Amino acid sequence: MNLEEYQGVWVFIEQNEGEIEGVSLELLGAGRKLADKLEVPLAGVLLGDGIRQLANQVIYYGADEVYIIDHPVLKDYRTESYMKGVILLAEKYKPEIFLYGATPNGKDLASAVATDLSTGLTADTTMLDIDLENRLFEASRPAFGGNIMATILCKKHRPQMATVRPKVMKALEPDQSRQGKIMEETISLKEEEMRTKVLQIVKDVSNTANLADAHVIVCGGKGMGDYQNFQLIHEFAKTIGASVGGSRDVVEAGWLPHSLQIGQTGETVTPKVFFAIGISGAIQHVVGMKNSEIIIAINKDPNAPIFDVATYGIVGDAMEILPKLIEQFKQVLKTSGGELSYV
Rank of each mutant, 00 (worst) to 15 (best):
Q7I: 15
V11G: 10
I20Y: 08
G22T: 15
K33D: 14
L34R: 01
L34C: 13
L38E: 05
P41R: 00
L46Y: 10
D49C: 10
I51V: 13
V58D: 00
I59D: 01
D64L: 14
E65P: 09
I68L: 04
D70M: 02
P72H: 04
P72Y: 14
V73P: 08
Y77M: 08
V86C: 06
V86Y: 02
I87S: 03
E91I: 09
K92A: 03
K92L: 10
K92Y: 02
K94S: 01
G101W: 01
A102T: 05
K107A: 13
L117H: 01
T119N: 06
L132C: 11
A139S: 15
R141C: 11
T151V: 11
L153D: 05
C154A: 02
P159K: 05
M161G: 06
M161L: 12
M161K: 03
V164S: 03
P166I: 12
K170L: 14
P174A: 04
E184F: 08
E185Y: 01
T186G: 07
I187G: 07
S188N: 15
S188H: 10
L189M: 10
E193D: 02
M194A: 02
K197H: 13
V198W: 02
D204F: 09
V218M: 03
Y227D: 09
Q228D: 15
G246Q: 07
R248K: 14
D249K: 08
V250Y: 06
W255C: 06
S259R: 09
G266N: 02
E267F: 11
V269N: 07
T270M: 11
I283R: 04
Q284K: 09
H285W: 08
K290I: 06
I295T: 10
N299V: 12
D301S: 12
D301Y: 05
A304D: 04
V309F: 04
A310I: 09
G316A: 09
A318V: 12
M319W: 13
I326T: 07
I326P: 10
Q328E: 12
F329C: 06
G337F: 13
S341F: 12
